[in-house]
Amino acid sequence: MDANAMIDALLEVLRGQIARAREIQRLPAELLLKRPAQGKWNALEVFEHMNLSSGVYARGIAKVFGGQAARHPANPVFKAGFLGDFSTKAMLPKPDGRIAWRMKTLRMFDPPRQHGASSESIARFIALCECFLRLLEQARGTDLNRMKVVSSLGPILCFKAGDAFRFPIAHQQRHFLQIERLLAQ
């Protein structure tokens, strides 16, 4: 696929998420804490979950970019890896907003079993998305096929740098649907 078109599409999704997160920041605290049932996540915990999981990729990409981005000449074509493509498509909500392929959260990404979530979680989420924006701009000048980023499953699954952008952003899209459901309660 066209690397620049992919980057543009991801930038647009991220900007939309940042704008929505800023609106959500201003909602009443009680609504942000509201749980659909005991033991279920509230909106803040969903934000913190995204911080924990997407943070792995933001740090991973920043690390490989720091070491290698300058060495690879810009490549206008990105060919998604098999597992990267499969995982991203599995993450993306269906066109009708349905979520296929539900999965159990890893302990390390489950806020209640980590250090909890607070209003700060939304601010940190916005900062994380802005970090992705900067990395995506940097991505235009390098080759996203040539660098590998360790996935959140650990070194048993590495994504190509391009997939390391697509996967967490698709994962965030899925969770934004969850947030909208929680806020509509």
Binding site: P28, A29, E30, L32, L33, N42, L44, E45, E48, P111, P112, H115, G116, A117, S118, S119
Partner: peptide, 24 residues
Amino acid sequence: EYAYSKGAAVCAVGQVEQRFYIVR
């Protein structure tokens, strides 16, 4: 107003407390 979900640290040892709170 600030929201904290169950288990979250309002302040942790070593941090400087930035705010004084009334509990709603």
